[in-house]
Each structure stands twice: as structure tokens, then as C-alpha cells.
Design a protein around this nucleic acid. Structure first.
Lengths: 299, 299
DNA sequence: TTCGTCCCATACCTAAAAAGTATGGCGTTT
DNA sequence: AAACGCCATACTTTTTAGGTATGGGACGAA
């Protein structure tokens, strides 16, 4: 049974005769007659009562008419839905982000949804390793992360990257250890005097290395008293006065807390590169492309 | 977009590759490749991500898979339903009956539903004229009526008839006018002495004529004091003692009332022929055929 | 790295199915 | 009775799907 045959059948049912239906379908009468007959043979069913001068539906035919109308309507709707997903105006977009970048998402998503209100999001958070894995498994399409995006010695995948405006590192110091309200910056050397907290796990070590190398270039070695695995932990420790740390500005700006102060670092060109990362030469949904394009256009 | 293509698409989605799907479909790989490509072109949609070694569904493809599965399932179910209606195991059966025959329906329907519990009924009641009209308009398929089934001088339709066991006419007499409890029969002559009620309207005159002609053959002329249009009216008038009448036995037996008595008519072969009537050489649903067959088998 | 394997895509050919044409039969209408 | 309208059949043409041969690209093993 074929969609075309269902259409033919409906045309005949509506016209009440084959000749007129054939005209409506822009075809000749004999092929239509044949299709109807074949359909009835295939189903083992009499669809029309031909005994009168006018073709009338049998009970079976009337039921088929109802069902066929529904099916054809549903088919159209489904194809329309599929097209919308393809065009990126509907469907969903799965994005992953490292903790230190989640603060960038709300604004981006808000902007995106202004243009494509039908698109929903699936956001996951993880370290570079988890996110790279998720990309490979295609459970997410885009990653927002600190650059460079590396999660293993040698990944078998290649990535495309869109660099976002870089995010300057700032010093984060407990208010109680830095009572001078007017001071807005600090030197690396002064910073190295504080007990130091760093964001580091076995899996995510990139930012830690970047910060350390900056100190090392100035001949300094901070006194690391704690390695923390999450931003929430490190900020709460700083707020409690345990020590100071260095974090990308956007991370700190997201959660302003009275008990800690954010200071510019005077003597270092010290920035965290942030980027949107995706698998190179792999299929990217239109939704994901739109997300990227939004940044491309923006800057 | 074609059902076949949806099947192909689902096979590919399930197999994860075209070659294996082609094997499952008992066809070669190139035609399947082409169909998929054509489908994507037709929809303007990328359904599979071919960049990996394994074909994976895009978001649009995944949506189409869901929809296609639903559509194909529904199509099968619909065709199955249609076949069931054709076979007469499902659907409905529209029957008309004259008032004096409705008493025959309950048992017939009960018996029918034992065999075809999925079939529902639409019953309408009317005179010969209305029922013939309904047959012509195909709003009913069968009529149960007194024979002969004639409703106009010349009907443009021909009918097929299945005669049912004939229904003897009985005299119906008010208990108060016939106090002898033991008497079970009466002569035409005795009956003609009662004030007579008859079932007759302008449209339905058959039974009246039959009864009158029977009296006439015996040289009797009943004293007709009232023409009634319905069984309910005539029975209530008899019960009230207004007069006597003659009705088919089944009609009276249906509603036994203390205040009236039913007597066999001794000296007349006096029967009402009952039959199932339908349009000759016209389509009859299987349900209707089954209904007729049930009587054919029964007797 | 290179070779072999697996899979998809393309080009070309064959087969099947659908559409078109011509025509005849049947029933209704005038 | 003749004319018309509609359906059905037989036959032809066109379209579309399916099959065969083959090449290119990715992946894995040697």
C-alpha cells in the first residue's frame, strides 16, 4: 500500500466518480481505475459500491477514507517538523561547558532563543576529558571551554575552534586579608605572598599550568596550600579567608561575594582564551551552526 | 514521499549502514543508497551523518525515525481495521424495521452479536415508505417488514427478500368484552361483531388491506370505528375496551397485558408474511450478509 | 607505510510499474 | 432509439525502481 494510492482513493471518494477524480489529479481515467482496482485486490476489500450510477463508499471504504486522511495529514506534518529541525528553527542543541565557562552560557542562550524560540537546549558540564568524550559520542555538539582544548595526550579527533573574546585573569583575595577598599590591582609578587589555592584535578590541569607558568616567568613560586576541583569550592575557601587564587574574570564576576575582592593583576599579560569547540569534518546541526554564527556575527 | 522510502530509511537507521540494511531488505546496496539520497534531496534535509565510519542519525533524522515508525505502524493498523470491516467482523450494520416487526429484532441481534461481538447496530423504525427511502439512500441496508414490501405505486428499485417464518394473525379482544377465560379461539364472524380497530395510515395500508380482504372473503364487514397509526395506540385502545382488532401474534405477544386477550382465529388461514428486504443487485456489506445468512442457516 | 578490507557513491543497464491511448460495453437520458 | 457519460480492458509508452560493475575513501593489520 502506497501513499500515492491513498491519495488516489481519497480523490475518487471526494469526486464520487473516477473520471472527475482523474481530472482533478491531472491524469487519465484508465490508470486511476486500475489503481483503485489493484488497491481493492491488494486489500481484499470492496471500497466502492459500483452498482448505482454514483460510486459510493462501502463501510470499509468509509473507514479507509477517515484513516487515509489522517495518515496523509500526519505525514505532511511530520515532514514539516523534520524540515524545521533541519533548518535549525526547531529541535534541540546539546552543549557542554567547563565549569569556568558556564557563566558565558546564559546570555548566549538568551540571545539564541530570541531568534529561534522553538529550539531547546541540553547543557552538560564537565572537564575537558568528559566533554571531549561526549563530543566523540555525539551526545553534545559544541563545547565551550578554556583553550587550548586538550584532554588526552593524543586525541584521535581534530577540532574546529572559534575563539571568543579573551577573559583576563584576575586575583581573588579574601576581603579580610586585603582591607584596602580602594586598591583595584595587585602585582604578581604581592599575590605570591598569599597562601595560594588552585583549581586543579588529575583530569583538568590546563588552567593550573597556565597560571603557574606565569608566576614562573616572573621567578615566583606561589605557596600552594590547596588544589580544588571546582569553582564553588575554591571561591568559598577564598571567601573564608583561607588564601588567594587566580581565576578568569568572568568566573568571579558571576558570583559577587562581599567577603572576597577581585583585583587586576598589574604586571602580567595574563588572559584565558575561551572558545567554542566542535569536531572538525563532522556533521554539525543547523542549530549548532546558528549558535556559532551568532558569535561570528557578534564580533 | 513514499511508504517504501520510509521503510528503507528505517532499515538503514536500524542497521547503521546501508550495505547491511540492503541485505536485510533483500536488495542491493546501490539502489538503497540512491533512495536515501533522493529522500534527503526531496526533503532538503541531511538524515545521516556520514562523516564517521558509522552512519549516525542527525537530529532531523532521529525525528523522522520516530515519526516514520509511528506512521508505518498506523498504516498497518488502519489496513487491518479496514479488512475487519470488510469481513464483517467489525463495523456496524444499519437495519430498519416496521413497528410491527421490531419485536423480532432483539433475539436476532443477540444471536448475531454472539458471533460478531465487534459489530454494532443502527436501528431505525418507520413505515414502508420511510424504510424504502432509507434503503435507496443507503442509510440502512436491511429492512425487516411485513410482506409484500411495497411503498409506492411503482418503485424504481428491485428488492431481494428472505421470507421469515410467517406470523399468524390473532384476534385481540378486551378482557372485559370476553370474560370467558377458557376460550382460546374465535371465529371471524364472532370477531366481526366487535367494534373494530385497525392499524392504518395513509402511508401504511398493507396489513389493513390484508385483514379486510380476509373478512370480505367470508362475506363479513367489520365495523371499523377507528384507524390507528401505531401499535402502542391500538393496543391501549383495545385494553381500554373500545373494541377488538387483528394483529400478528408476535406483536401482541411482545407486550402481554391483563386487560386484553389474544385469541386464535379458527376459520381463516390468516398469516402475516414477514421478511428481510434489501436492494437487489446493490452492494451489501458483509455484516448485512451475515445477518441474512444467520436466518438462512436457522431455517 | 602499504596493503587489504569494508563501505559508500557513481555510471550504466535492465526490469518493473505506472501513465497514456484507443476502444468497447453498460446504463441513463433525451 | 440515439447520444452521452462513465467505467473497464487491451495495448503502448514513459517513468521509476532495481541490478551490475567499478572506483574512491576510511580504517585496520601487517
Amino acid at each position: 500500500m502506497d501513499i500515492r494510492q491513498l491519495r488516489y482513493f481519497l480523490a475518487i471518494a471526494e469526486a464520487g466518480q473516477i473520471t472527475r477524480a482523474a481530472k482533478a489529479l491531472n491524469m487519465e481515467q484508465p490508470p486511476l481505475s486500475r489503481q483503485l482496482k489493484q488497491m481493492e485486490r491488494e486489500l481484499g476489500v470492496t471500497l466502492f459500491d459500483r452498482s448505482g450510477k454514483q460510486l459510493t463508499l462501502t463501510h470499509a471504504g468509509d473507514l479507509l477514507r477517515e484513516r487515509a486522511e489522517g495518515l496523509i495529514r500526519q505525514l505532511h506534518e511530520s515532514l514539516q517538523e523534520v524540515k524545521e529541525v533541519e533548518e535549525g528553527v526547531s529541535g534541540f542543541l546539546a552543549i557542554g561547558a567547563v565549569v569556568s565557562c558556564v557563566s558565558l552560557l546564559p546570555r548566549a542562550i538568551e540571545r539564541y532563543r530570541e531568534k529561534y524560540p522553538q529550539v531547546t537546549f541540553k547543557i552538560s558540564e564537565g572537564d575537558h576529558y568528559q566533554l571531549g568524550d561526549a563530543l566523540a559520542k555525539r551526545s553534545i555538539e559544541l563545547v565551550v571551554a578554556r583553550l587550548p582544548f586538550e584532554f588526552a595526550e593524543e586525541s584521535p579527533y581534530e577540532y574546529d575552534v572559534l575563539r571568543l573574546p579573551s577573559d583576563p585573569f584576575v586575583a581573588v583575595i579574601p576581603s579580610k586579608l586585603q582591607p584596602d577598599q580602594k586598591q583595584t590591582s595587585i602585582t604578581l609578587a604581592a599575590l605570591a605572598d598569599y597562601p595560594f589555592l588552585t583549581l586543579k584535578t588529575d583530569q583538568t590541569i590546563g588552567m593550573h599550568k597556565q597560571v603557574m607558568s606565569e608566576f614562573r616567568q616572573s621567578g615566583l613560586t606561589p605557596n600552594i596550600i590547596c588544589e580544588c576541583s571546582s569553582v564553588a569550592i575554591i571561591l568559598s575557601l577564598v571567601a573564608a579567608g583561607i588564601g588567594a587564587t587566580v581565576l578568569p574574570k568572568s568566573v568571579v564576576a558571576m558570583s559577587p561575594i562581599d567577603s572576597l575582592r577581585m583585583l587586576r593583576i598589574e604586571d602580567a599579560e595574563f588572559q584565558s582564551e575561551v572558545g567554542i569547540v566542535w569536531l572538525k569534518d563532522r556533521y554539525l546541526s543547523k542549530s549548532a551552526r546558528h549558535f556559532i554564527d551568532q558569535y561570528m556575527d557578534g564580533y
